[in-house]
Design a protein around this nucleic acid. Structure first.
Length: 270
DNA sequence: AAATTCTCCTGAAGGC
DNA sequence: TGCCTTCAGGAGAATT
């Protein structure tokens, strides 16, 4: 499942191949994604030149002349560069056909999306209310402290709320909370400012480390097979229910928070 | 207003 | 071996 680091890796992987190129056509084989791919998308964007590729949260933004494509990889989406003679496989739902190559989108569970927005892109409903980027200075202890003030919701669900901060998925939320020594169940408003500062740094570090990992698996990513980057990194808690905490040895426990599996150490995380 | 639950989907994994 | 059920989860929508 693509998390922010995988999206970052995807953007970095496709950008050099398509930046400055003319988009000839959007070839949609199955437009039934999270939201249907707009019927008139090809009419709008075909013939426009790609100016740049950026990322906002987990959204891939392809900036053209009059607006941009807003892509999301959902749970199982991937974008890779292929040549025009490569036949599409099952679940390859659309191609962005540029002059020299195609961006081929594959997504078995179809939780992803492809939408269009005229400039300015941030006016799109999906982008308008997003919180700060976690790896910039816009995400800091002041912002998080304000967001947590008076909140009774668990700290874990708060940091996974894209209106508070973008790009913190379930895996990295688990890992960051372990790194910060904070119990995922703890009410957000009852985490001290000092500990929130530690959490901010943990989130930044976990994501930055994963981007480094993602960078190392870029080739796999483009090749097709290969595990996503986070499988290669040393996960401390996610997927380790019942196994010994790497700090104290106590068995890690799992609970459900907001329908998401939450793993933590009762001893190390308060 | 805030917090929780539901929803989309398919492939993998587990049970018998 | 095969069929069934359960689970995973991003994140907006719906509900409490």
């Amino acid at each position: 499942m693509p998390e922010l680091p995988e999206v970052e890796t995807t953007c970095a992987g496709i950008a050099p191949h398509i930046t400055g190129q003319l988009l000839r056509k959007v070839e949609v084989r199955d437009g039934r994604l999270r939201w249907p791919i707009p019927e008139d998308l090809n009419e709008i964007v075909a013939g426009q030149t790609l100016v740049k590729v950026t990322r906002r949260g987990k959204y891939v933004l392809m900036h053209f002349q009059t607006g941009g494509l807003i892509g999301h990889l959902g749970m199982t989406g991937s974008m890779r560069i292929v040549t025009a003679d490569e036949p599409p496989a099952y679940h390859d739902h659309f191609d962005l056909c540029f002059d020299d190559c195609l961006v081929r989108y594959r997504d078995p569970r179809r939780f992803g999306s492809l939408l269009w927005q005229d400039y300015p892109l941030e006016e799109h409903a999906l982008l308008a209310d997003l919180g700060p980027e976690p790896l910039t200075d816009d995400f800091n202890v002041d912002v998080l402290h304000t967001a947590c003030k008076g909140k009774k919701q668990p700290i874990k669900t708060l940091i996974m709320d894209s209106k508070k901060v973008v790009g913190v998925g379930n895996i990295y939320a688990n890992e960051a909370l372990f790194m910060a020594g904070i119990n995922p169940n703890r009410q957000a408003g009852r985490v001290s400012r000092k500990r929130l500062a530690v959490l901010v740094e943990a989130i930044k570090q976990v994501l930055a480390d994963a981007i480094k990992q993602g960078g190392t698996t870029l080739r796999n990513f483009v090749d097709s097979e290969g595990n996503p980057g986070y499988f290669k990194q040393q996960l401390q808690v996610y997927g380790r229910t019942g196994k010994p905490c790497r700090h104290c040895g106590e068995a890690l426990i799992e609970v459900r928070l907001g329908q998401r599996s939450t793993v933590y150490c009762r001893h190390c995380q308060r």
